[in-house]
Every structure is written in structure tokens, then in C-alpha cells.
Amino acid sequence: MKELTYVRPTDARDAVARVSDDPHARFLGGGTNLVDHLKLGLLTPDVLVDVSRLPLDEVTRLDDGTLRIGTNVRNSDLAAHPVVRSSYPAVTRALLAGASGQIRNQATTGGNLLQRTRCVYFQDVTTPCNKREPGSGCSAIGGYGRYDAVLGASEACVATHPSDLAVALAALDAVVVVLGRDGERRVPMSDFHRLPGHHPETDTTLAHGELVTSVELPPESALTRASDYRKVRDRASYAFALVSVAAALELDGDVVRDVRIAWGGVAHRPWRAAAAEEALRGETYSEEAVRAAAELELAAAVTGPDNAYKIPMVRNATAYALRGLADRSSERTGATR
């Protein structure tokens, strides 16, 4: 860990200016991933700009019903928030499926989205990794591949994004609010994380010095209320996803009025299964239809011996998640399927 300067501005604009002006400065939030990286030698910043105590720690409902979540709301507080629990259960479920109680008390909303892959080679500075050291090669290709991406990977990188929360936010069409030197901009979740392409070193579309200040969830609806998150993992708790599914389903009788599906553990970013959603929307709900829709989304998947299991696993997990939502829908309406 290199010697570094620590500063704690009291104003978000100062923080942004401080990092924007210095290519060797980084924001420090909850620290659960960044401090880890400092110790592993992955990052060697000269300056840490602590934004974790900026007053961006409130959950507020805007006049139009949008739920604004300050970037410094801790994961545990967000999960326990009464509005989130009742109106956006996929968010609470995703948060509670991640990390541990202690880490959720520490990790922030923005930091959660900005956490980096847990690919074992990325975290091991003694092995080549294009994400860590562009041009050095990808050790995961031809190496340990159990957690590797099956969708949207490139020859440069097969890493997966580790966040649970981001998958739920992707499914619910959240918007990330970002403050830069030139003011605020709003980035839909679908444009926030990148696929690796030739530049796996870049995880998101943020510029250096841009600070996530809040995340906004659209006004609650029948769809957001009927949302859920299912995570498949080796250990029963305190483990990253093999695959995960955030889903929301609104049925009109048997007919899928609207549906949202996003996958975790399959790609370099939360994977919104748009083709699967399209295939289901307006169709009669059935388990077979969901499986077929998932297969459609997975048609472009590329797998190796270590991660081929993710295809049936994510397909089944999707069917399982939607079945749970469909069952609850019919409980509510008294309909039988």
C-alpha cells in the first residue's frame, strides 16, 4: 500500500473538484472494496478523497413518486427502509443476499454499484489481467472459470460484475445521478456499467472525478411491488452469486402485462434480459414460456468447461423466480392457473 494523502471535503463539489484535478486521486466511500484493493496492491492512488460522510445519506420520495436514495445510504439501512421493503422488494432482497451484516453496515449505495469484479486473477497482482493492467492478457481465459461471464464477454476479459444490488436496480430501471465538474447528469442503469470490449479496465461510463450522488427508483407500481431477487450460490450465505435473477411480473389473468428480468453473475455488467422480456410481454404466462424466453436470451452465450452450467442454472433460476411471482399474483387475485 503506497503512502497516501487523505482528505475529507465537506461539500460534494469540492470532492469532485479534488478528484477531477488529480489523476492519482480516488473517492473513498465505505471502503469495503477500495481498502481491499489498496492492500492487494491493485490500486496505488496518491490521494483518497473521503466522501463517506457527505450528507448524501437520505432516502426521500420526490413529488412525482420517484424514490431518491442518497449515495451514502448504507446497504443495511436501504434494505430495512420501509418503503423499499414494501414497494421495491427486489432491492431489499438483493441487498440482503449480498455480503454480511457487518459489510452491509459499512457499504454505501454508490459504492455497491462501483465495486469491482472478484475474478481471482484481477485480485492477484502476480498474474496478467487486462482489467488491472491493460494489454497484459487475460488469465481467466484458460484458467479458473467457474465464475466467468457467459454473455457479452470479450477476448480481453471474461469477468463478471459482483453486485447484487445493481442487478435489482437494472431490472427496475433505476437511474444513477452523477455529479461532475460540469454539473449533474443522469445515467440510466442500462448505460451505467459497460461490457468489457477492448477496454475491460473501465467498468462504467463515469469519467474520472464524477461522483455518484444518488440512485433514483421510478415511482412504485404494481410491477415494482411484484419484484423479487433470487441468488444461487455455493455457500448458503456470505458468498458471491454463481448466477442471480432480479425479476418483476405483472399478470393480467394469465397474460403477462409486463415483466422485467435482469441477471447477475453472467456478464461484465448486470444483464438486462430484454429479448426474454419482449418474448414474454403480452403472452400467456407459463413455465415453459419463461424457459423458452430465457433460452432465447441465452442464444448468444459463449461458455467454457467451467461455466457452461450457468446456462441451465440461470434459465432455471429465472423460471423459478417468475413462478414465485406468478404464484403470489394468483394468490392476490384469487385466480387459478
Binding site: 481471482v120 486473477y121 492477484d124 502476480t126 498474474t127 488469465s139 484458460g142 479458473y144
Partner: peptide, 8 residues
């Protein structure tokens, strides 16, 4: 890892 020789 069969290429590097250490436990990853």
C-alpha cells in the same frame, strides 16, 4: 492454476 502453479 495449471499455468502458474499456485492456488488461485
Amino acid at each position: 492454476d495449471s499455468r502458474f502453479g499456485h492456488v488461485v
